[in-house]
Simulated scan of single mutants.
Amino acid sequence: MTTNLLEFKDVQYTYPGGKAPVLRGISLGIPEGKKCVLLGRNGCGKSTLFLHGNGIFQPQRGEVFWRGQSFVYKRSFLQEMTKKVGLVFQDPEHQLIASTVSEDVSYGLLNQRLAPELVRKKVHQILERFGLLAMADAPIHHLSLGQKRRLALAGVMVLEPELLLLDEPTAYLDRYQTKNLLRELDQIHAHGTTVLMATHDLDVAFEWAEWICVLDEGRVVFAGEPDEALAKREMLEELDLGVPLIADVWAALPIELREEWGGKVPRSLAEFTQRMNVSRFGENP
């Protein structure tokens, strides 16, 4: 049985001065141990939902739960939640607050009042893990966008959260940088962290995710496995999300060939190529 780490029940939120709710009674559970994606076009409520996920925002109606315990909007509880639920913003400039790389990564650890020797050890380990050790003393304003995003991710992961929330992490990244990011997220997931990524990139979502939720106008319209979402092609197109390119390529093949190559839409080009080679040569190349 799947356990939900984070759960939203009938959550509603309207920004001050706003005319309509951004979140309209959202009820949703984030399954533990999965690589998850939150899909939806811009303005559907993805970022606002994330800001409720570790207590930065408080629902105006409804409740948020962590492992079945309702959020308590007091300093001690919320400080604990920032360790359990790590949030990486879309724009790293909103997250990086120190002068140098190592100072920024150490900020959250110092707030925990850890011994200086332990802080130095953890900072060294996380900078090495994310390929930032050589620039430990570099001023943050000298970093590229990709390096700043990696630093923001390192600053969250040094706290060893159980759940990692990433808001549009592939925005403005090229294909090479996106592949590197997804490899990093695979490693984070392999070390035991549940990952939830907000995006409107269908190709990234269906290649990487094990579980998908679709939002539209502040409501949940789908939650389940990627194959189930792909079967709702009409819904995806009505929401202006479209379908992954690989799904269009698959649909263009003769039905006999699709059945011979496994029936279901491949999740990636690599899987497509593998099925084709198995069909032609009878074994994996």
Rank of each mutant, 00 (worst) to 15 (best):
P16W: 08
F8L: 14
G45F: 06
D104N: 10
K74L: 07
E93V: 12
N42R: 09
N54Q: 08
F89G: 04
Q95L: 10
S76M: 13
M81Y: 03
F89P: 05
Q90F: 07
G43P: 07
G29W: 09
C44L: 02
M81K: 08
Q79G: 10
T82E: 05
C36R: 02
Q60I: 00
S102R: 14
T82M: 07
E7T: 15
P92N: 08
L51D: 00
K34V: 05
F89W: 05
G45K: 05
T100E: 09
Q58I: 03
E93T: 13
S106Y: 04
S102I: 07
G86L: 01
G33H: 13
P116E: 04
V64F: 01
E103Y: 06
I30V: 15
G55L: 05
R41W: 01
I97L: 15
S76W: 05
V88T: 04
L96E: 05
G53F: 00
R113S: 11
L96P: 06
L51K: 11
R75T: 13
F50H: 03
V11T: 07
V72K: 15
L23Q: 04
L6W: 08
L49S: 00
L110P: 00
H94V: 13
N111L: 09
A115W: 00
L28S: 09
L109P: 03
M81V: 11
I26E: 03
Q95R: 10
Y15P: 05
